[in-house]
Design a protein around this nucleic acid. Structure first.
Length: 284
DNA sequence: CGTTCAACCTGGGCGC
DNA sequence: TGCGCCCAGGTTGAAC
């Protein structure tokens, strides 16, 4: 997503519209009219990704106004598009970026669970700083995972979704990472040893890098699209996510689906074997 | 500390 | 065809 909209950097915001903003919630702070006023005339200096959030750096028009950041959290169905969205419905915001090949950025969100916030530097730190987001999954190391999760009793799958522990991993990639690492998603973190963390970290970096290369996962025929409204292709490389009942690509055992923390978890019971408890110490 | 549930929303799919 | 469920790439806060 960040790569797709990176070319808006250097543009200036000429106009802001909220074509559907009166009918639905979707958290926009400040309220649309005020946000539009604050954005108008600002120059776009940066587009950054922090975990699953996008932060657009702005140099406001007025001479003494401090830099601002437009922090966008797409959540389940939010998309940033440089082309017209599939339908006008659910479109929440349009930035007219001006004198650019692709001069309009739109935030389109079918379910409306996404959020848009305009913040200052301190607000960016609050929304995307180390207190909120751990090391990014694209670059996380075994040592870092062991440090933040090693003592936890939580199941590894649930822990990988904790953005404060490690940033940027969602339900699809948590499942894919653990399949590649060969670890049962129910394993308590504290039962993992150094070699396990090496495999989890390497799998996280590898899976996420490949998913970015393939422009994400577009499952079925709706929802996630690139900034120019193309499907991603990583779904073709999924080994477990959404594949319950189909044979594991590695061992032919049917993939299983369970629920953890109210989210689906997919895994192969053979490639990701249940771990025996540490053997009871025997004294005699 | 960790888990569970509800809430925020729309829409597709399925069984009856 | 229509209705009532269940499900969905996420996050947060309350209750236990």
């Amino acid at each position: 997503m960040r790569r797709g909209i990176g070319r808006i950097v250097g543009g200036r915001i000429h106009a802001v519209r909220f074509p559907r903003s009166t009918r639905r919630p979707l958290s926009i702070v400040p309220r649309p009219a005020l946000l539009a006023e604050r954005l108008r005339g600002a120059r776009i200096d940066a587009v950054e990704r922090h975990g699953k959030r996008i932060a657009i750096g702005l140099e406001p028009a007025g001479p003494e106004r401090a830099p601002r950041w437009l922090v966008i959290e797409p959540r389940m169905t939010g998309l940033l598009l440089l082309v017209p969205p599939p339908t006008a419905d659910h479109l929440r915001m349009e930035l007219d970026v001006g004198d650019r090949p692709c001069h309009r950025l739109r935030f389109w969100d079918q379910r409306g669970l996404g959020t848009i916030r305009l913040v200052d530097a301190a607000g960016l730190e609050r929304a995307c700083g180390a207190a909120k987001l751990g090391v990014d999954g694209l670059v996380v190391t075994a040592a870092e995972l062991g440090r933040v999760l090693g003592g936890s009793r939580r199941a590894i799958k649930v822990a990988l979704l904790d953005q404060r522990a490690v940033a940027g991993i969602g339900n699809i990639y948590a499942a894919e990472i653990l399949h590649r690492a060969g670890i049962d998603p129910r394993t308590p973190c504290r039962r993992l040893v150094a070699d396990d963390w090496e495999r989890v970290a390497a799998a996280a970096r590898g899976i996420l890098a490949a998913a970015v290369d393939h422009e994400g996962s577009s499952i079925g025929d709706e929802l996630y699209r690139t900034a120019d409204d193309r499907k991603g292709s990583y779904q073709r490389l999924h080994r477990v996510y959404g594949l319950a009942g189909t044979p594991c690509r590695r061992c032919r055992t049917p993939i299983e689906r369970i629920v953890q923390a109210q989210r689906s978890t997919f895994f192969c019971p053979v490639c990701q074997p249940r771990r025996r408890r540490a053997p009871p110490r025997r004294s005699r």
